[in-house]
Amino acid sequence: MLFIAARLGLAALTIAGVATLVFFGMRLIPGSYADLFFPLASEADREAISIEYGLDGSALEQYILWLGKLLQGDFGTSLVTNKPVIDEIVQRLPLTLELGFLALMIIAFIGFPMGIISGMFHKKWTSQVGRHSSTFLMSIPNFVLGSLLVYAFSVNSLGLKAGGWAPLSEGLMENLKYAILPAFTLSITGLGLVLATARSSVLGVIGQDHILAAVSRGLSPKDIFSKHIFRNALIPVITIFAIVAGYLLGGTVLVETVFSLDGVGRLLVNSITRRDYPVVQIGVILTATAFVLTNTIADILYGIIDPRVTEKNDG
C-alpha cells in the first residue's frame, strides 16, 4: 500500500512539474495574446486588453493566481472563444479518445497475436518477417503513412474516408468509415512495438527451463502455450500497452493534421499559435496526466506481479 501511495505521490509531483513548465514556457513565447489579436492597437490599448484578460502583472503573480484557481477546479476561459476551457476540450475529446481506443484495439488484436506467432515459430521465416516488420512499422513516421493513405484512398476510396469525421451519433458504420484510416495511422508505432515485445517475450519464455521441463513431462503443446507461454508473454506486453496508451492521447497531433480532424491535438497546436494560454495549459496537463496515470498503473501492476520492484525501487 505504501508503495502505491508513493507512486501516486510521484505522479502528482510530475503533473505539477508539467503544469509549471507549460505555464512559463507559454509565457516565454514572444508575442502576447494582445499583440496577436490587436496588432493595430496602440501600446496603451494593448495594455488595457492585457488587464481585461487577466494577463497583466508578472508571470509569477499570474502563475500563483492560476494555480490557486486550478486547485479549486476552475480551469479558466479560452482567450480566443471566451468559452470555458473545459468545454473546448470536452467537445473534442470524444474524437481523440475514439482514435486512441481504436488504435489500441488494432494493436491488441493485430500486433499482439502477430508477435506471439512470430515468437512461437522462431526458427521459421514467420519469425524473421515478424522481426523485420516490427522494425519497419516503428520506422514509418505516422504522418508519412497518413499522407500515403490519404493519397491511396483518394484514388480509390473503397468506401472509406480519408479526412473529415462523422461522430458516433451518426451511426457506428458511418463513424468507422471516417475513423478507421486515422486510427490505423495512429496505431502504427505501437503496433510495431507490441509485435516486437510479444515476439521477444515469447522467445524468452520458450528457451526457459520450465518450458523444457514441461515438454519433457509430455504436456500437450496447447497446454504449454496457454499455461506457460501466453501468460508469461502477457506481462511485458501489458506494460508496453500501458505506455502506448499513455502516449496516444498526446500522439494524435499529426494524425489529426493529416486527416483534417478537429481533435484535442490540433486544438493544442492552434492554441499555441494563438497564444491561448489557458487552453494550452489545461490541454497539456490533461495529456500528461493520462500518460502519468497509465504509467503509474503499469508500475503498480508490475509491482504486484513482481514484488522485487517494490523493494528495490529507488526512483
Binding site: P30, G31, S32, D35, L36, P39, T273, R274
Partner: peptide, 12 residues
C-alpha cells in the same frame, strides 16, 4: 513565423 510573432516583431 506565425501571425502573432510576425505582428509583434513588425508592428508591436
Amino acid at each position: 513565423v506565425d501571425g502573432g510573432v510576425w505582428a509583434k516583431r513588425t508592428w508591436g
